[in-house]
Design a binder for these strands. Structure first.
Length: 294
DNA sequence: CTCCAGGAACGAC
DNA sequence: GTCGTTCCTGGA
């Protein structure tokens, strides 16, 4: 295995609790990292990268300029300690921060993020991963890395030129026309990247013009793909978690809870959402990705 | 076999 | 604005 030739395997010395790859890559914010040789292979800004947790940090293998891009991808410059320390008076968030120490928000590239979350509509992580994998193998850019072939997320142009019938053959069902139309809009000049510099609400309104993108999916793209860290996505599980821990089981609408989260947790609300979602599901949902793994 | 999931769109009120 | 329905598919 190429990994045994350690010559290009960078060691990134960071505190053990600074970044936990398993929590970060498997909690449902990204869907395309594959397990390999004790680590994970995925794409960071269109380049294949291998990362592996080590006792003191993580090791890294990939193209030139990889460290700065990986640092940005895992948001290692965000003051996670300060962010979690601000939750000290919140019993639930304090426990969440302690339980999942090292969990971080990821800053994906916007288009891949959109594709993933459009496919997430009324779906689940394994199914999203399967659909994305089939899609990528069919029309994503093929890259040889570590002696194997890997496929990037298909470009907007590649997706927009597929027939709906072909798209549906990847098992994505009613999401196929959504994806195709989003791809077409982007190839026609709809700029996702420009939304990063707009105010949160304006960027959200613009995203929701696209077919298949409602409030929840928009918030996910804003948070995970466009750097709007005040976004507070509320899906069915987040709704259950918040109602259970903060509202004595009383029913609230998704819109109410999303705004409640933004107001309560401020500019870093997205981190609060990430921790509450991951921790709350681990507590309440038998199908949490981390059931039995802690 | 039946049932239901990590939503959005659309029409009816 | 809010409610009820429908939408593919895979796994329980």
């Amino acid at each position: 295995m190429i990994l045994e030739t350690q010559d290009s395997l960078s060691q990134v010395p960071i505190p053990p609790s600074f970044l936990r790859l398993d929590y970060t890559l498997k909690c449902g914010q990204v869907f395309r990292w594959e397990n390999l040789n004790g680590g994970y292979v995925g794409f960071v800004n269109f380049s294949p990268v291998y990362v592996r947790q080590e006792v003191n940090g993580f090791s890294l293998l990939g193209n030139a300029d990889r460290l700065s891009k990986v640092t940005s991808y895992f948001r290692l410059d965000d003051p996670l300690d300060d962010i979690t320390r601000a939750w000290k008076d919140d019993r639930i968030l304090s426990e969440a921060a302690k339980t999942f120490r090292g969990l971080r928000l990821i800053h994906q590239e916007a288009w891949s993020c959109l594709v993933g979350f459009v496919l997430s509509i009324m779906s689940n992580i394994p199914k999203i991963e399967t659909g994305l994998g089939k899609l990528a193998r069919h029309c994503g850019e093929r890259v040889r890395f570590l002696g194997s072939l890997f496929y990037a997320t298909p470009s907007p142009k590649a997706l927009s030129s597929l027939r709906e019938k072909t798209l549906r053959s990847f098992g994505i069902g009613f999401r196929a026309p959504y994806l195709k139309e989003c791809a077409r809009e982007v190839t026609r000049g709809f700029s996702l990247e420009e939304l990063a510099s707009l105010p949160y609400l304006e960027a959200k309104r613009a995203l929701m013009e696209l077919p298949g993108i409602g409030e929840k999916v928009a918030d996910c793209i804003l948070l995970h793909g466009l750097g709007h860290l005040e976004a507070f996505p509320v899906d069915v599980w987040m709704k259950r978690v918040l109602e259970h821990y903060y509202f004595k089981g009383e029913e609230k609408t998704e819109r109410y809870l999303s705004e409640w989260g933004r107001n309560k947790f401020g500019p870093w609300a997205g981190y609060a959402e990430l921790y509450l979602y991951t921790f709350g599901r681990w507590k309440l949902d038998p199908r949490s990705p981390f059931r039995g793994k802690r």
